[in-house]
Design a protein around this nucleic acid. Structure first.
Lengths: 342, 342
DNA sequence: CTGAAAGCGCTTACAG
DNA sequence: CTGAAAGCGCTTACAG
C-alpha cells in the first residue's frame, strides 16, 4: 500500500497542496468549507503528514530527548512516566537516553544523538551536567530543563535537598535521638552539589546545630541508593554494638527498606530499638509503615514538560509555572518506623 | 551559529555533495584519499547529517518505537534498559510509548504516533496486541517484535510461562507440600493467553497432575504484580487459619516479597511455616533469600533488538538469533524461602 | 482566502 | 571513482 502524500489529499479535495497544508495544520487562514473538504479527504485516505518532511522545513521535530541515569529506581521511573504522559498529551514524542555516569555512552549521546537535529529540547533527570555538555546543547540552541541534578545552563527544577536532609535529621533529634546515622548515596561527600551531597549537607548542618558534629562524622556510610545498598550499609552501621545508632536517616526510601530488613535480621525492633526515616514517598512506604519525606516525582516530570513546552513557545500550558528558583514541594509523613528514644 | 550542511563539507573538501555523502555514509565507492579529506572537513566544522533530510529520502528513521505498560516494575525496567543499550550501540534512537491497557492513550499511540513515518520498527513489551493494532503496523510495513505478550503478527519472544508455573509448583510439591496457593496476576483467569494466564495454567496443571485439582481451585488469589499486591493477597490467603496453605507460588518476585512480609506480620516463619517461591530473578531476590525461577529481562531486551535489526536488514547482528518459537531461558534458583514440609 | 514556486538538506540513480 | 540533477514530502513567503 502506497502512503498517501499531501498531494493526494489536495487532489481529492480539489485544492492546492499549500491550502491542504494550511487546512490541516491550522496555520494561516482557510475558508471553513475548504477546511472541512480537506479534512474529509485526509480522513478518507488515512493521510498523516510525514514528520521528516515537515521538520526539514520547520526545523521542529516535535520530539524531546530525556537523559536519565536509571529507569529502575522508583524515583526515576515515576519521573519518566510523568514526562511521557505530559509529552504524549502535547503531541510530542519522547526519545529515551538511559545514560548514567561519565563514559563512552554518555559522550556518544551528547556528541552524536543530541547534537543532531532530532530533538527540540532536552530534559535531564538527576544528571550532573558538565560545562561541555550544557555548552553543546546551548550551541545548538536546544532548551534544557534539569530536574534534580546539578549543572549550570538551562532551567533547574529541584526540591531543596539540603532542607530535606536537615528536616529528616531534626525529626529524629526532636524524638530525643542523638546517635543518628546517615545512609548517604554514593559520591555524597565528593559531590556536595549533587542530590546526595545536599542531603548529606543538611544532615551535617542539623547535627552540628544540635552540637553533635563529631557524632555525625562517625556515622555516615555511603552506599548504592537501593534496597540492597541500604541493607549492606545498615548492617555495617548496626554491627558495631558499642557505637550502635538509635536512629538512621536514609537518603532514599529504598535504602530505608533495606535498613529495616537489616535491623530485623539483627534482631533489632523498629522503631523500638531503631528509628528509620527515608526520603521519597515510595509506593511501598505505606506497606513498610515508613516515616519519610515525600516528594512527587510524577508531578515533577509533568512540570518539567510544562517548562519545556513554555521554552519552546507553546502557549498551551495550563498549570502555572513555578517561581523560578522556588523549590519543588515536599512533605514530612510520619508513620511507624520512627519513635521517641526510650 | 549556523548549522553546517553537507554542502559546506563538500566545498571545504573540494568535492561534490554526492561524493561527500558517499564518503560519510560509507555507501558507494570513494577513493581513500578523498574519504579522508571529506572526513577531516566534516570534523573541522562539526558536521552532523540532518536525520530529517536523510530519512525523507531513504525512508529510514534510525528510530525504534517501544510500547511498554510499565517502566517501574522491575521486569519492564530491565527490559527497557537492555533495549536502550542495544539500540544505542547500533546507532538507533528509542522512542518510548508508556501505554498500558486499552484506552484513549493507547489508541492515540497506535493510530497517530506509530502510524506516522517516524519509527522503523516497533518492540512491544508485555502488551497483548489486538488484531487491529497489529494490522495497523502491518499495513505500514513496520516490523514488529513482541516480548512476553500475546498477539498474532510479528515475531514473538517469550519464556515458557506455562512451564515456569508448572516447575514452581512441582518444586513445592516435591518438598511435600500439598496446600499450595497461587498469587496470580490480575486478569490471569480471564486472559489465559497472557503471561499471568499461562503461569496460572502451569500451576493448575501441576496441581491436577498431583491429584490436587480441587485444592488448587480454592487457593488462587489474583492481585497486582507488585509488592503491596503480594502483601494484600498473601494476607487474604494466610488469614484463614483452617485452610492456611503451607506454600505459596507467587507469579512474580515482587509479589513474593510482599508475601514474605505478610507472613512475618502474621508471625509465620519463612520457610518454617510457609514456603515461598517467585518468578523473575529480581535484583532484591538474593537479599530476601528468595527461591525463584530466574529469567533475564536485560538479555531479552537486547535479543529483541537483535531480531528487530535483523528484520530491518542490518546484518551486523553478532549473537545468533534464537530458534523461532524456542522459549527464552529460565533457571530455578533455590534459596532459603522454600523448605520441606515439616 | 488561495495557488505557483522555491527550498529545507539530504541521497541516489544515471552518466561519465 | 566522481559529479550534475532530480526528488523525497512537506511549508512558507510572495503574489494575487
Amino acid at each position: 500500500m502506497l502512503m498517501a502524500a499531501i498531494g493526494d489529499v489536495a487532489r481529492l479535495a480539489g485544492v492546492s497542496k499549500a491550502t491542504a497544508s494550511r487546512a490541516l495544520s491550522g496555520r494561516g487562514h482557510v475558508a471553513d468549507a475548504t477546511r472541512r473538504r480537506v479534512e474529509a479527504a485526509a480522513a478518507e485516505i488515512g493521510y498523516i503528514a510525514s514528520p521528516a518532511a515537515a521538520s526539514l522545513v520547520t526545523g521542529r521535530t516535535m520530539n524531546v530527548g530525556v537523559v536519565i541515569p536509571f529507569v529502575n529506581r522508583w524515583f526515576f521511573g515515576e519521573v519518566l512516566e510523568g514526562i511521557e504522559q505530559a509529552l504524549l498529551a502535547a503531541g510530542y514524542d519522547l526519545t529515551l537516553y538511559n545514560v548514567g555516569s561519565a563514559g563512552l555512552d554518555r559522550d556518544r549521546v551528547f556528541d552524536f544523538f543530541l547534537a543532531r537535529k532530532r530533538v527540540d529540547a532536552v530534559i535531564a533527570v538527576g544528571v550532573d551536567l558538565t560545562e561541555r555538555e550544557t555548552a553543546s546543547l546551548d550551541r545548538r540552541e536546544k532548551p534544557l530543563v534539569s530536574l534534580g541534578g546539578s549543572g549550570t545552563g538551562g532551567a533547574l527544577l529541584s526540591i531543596d535537598d539540603r532542607a530535606v536532609g536537615a528536616l529528616a535529621t531534626e525529626h529524629l533529634l526532636h524524638l530525643g535521638h542523638t546517635r543518628i546515622a546517615h545512609l548517604a548515596g554514593e559520591g555524597a561527600s565528593t559531590h556536595p552539589e549533587s542530590v546526595h551531597g545536599c542531603r548529606r549537607e543538611g544532615y551535617l548542618e542539623a547535627m552540628a546545630a544540635a552540637g553533635l558534629a563529631s557524632e555525625a562524622d562517625a556515622h555516615i556510610v555511603e552506599t548504592a541508593m537501593s534496597m540492597p545498598g541500604g541493607y549492606t550499609g545498615a548492617l555495617q552501621l548496626l554491627g558495631h554494638p558499642g557505637r550502635r545508632p538509635s536512629a538512621v536517616f536514609a537518603a532514599s526510601d529504598e535504602m530505608a527498606f533495606g535498613a529495616i530488613r537489616a535491623a530485623e535480621r539483627l534482631g533489632l525492633a523498629v522503631p523500638g530499638d531503631l528509628s528509620v526515616i527515608g526520603v521519597d514517598g515510595h509506593e511501598y512506604a505505606e506497606m513498610f509503615g515508613l516515616t519519610t519525606i515525600e516528594q512527587y516525582p510524577g508531578e515533577q516530570g509533568r512540570l518539567a514538560v510544562d517548562v519545556v513546552l513554555h521554552l519552546l513557545g507553546e502557549d498551551v500550558v495550563a498549570d502555572p509555572l513555578p517561581d523560578s528558583g522556588a523549590p519543588l514541594p515536599t512533605r514530612l509523613v510520619v508513620r511507624s518506623t520512627t519513635a521517641a528514644l526510650r
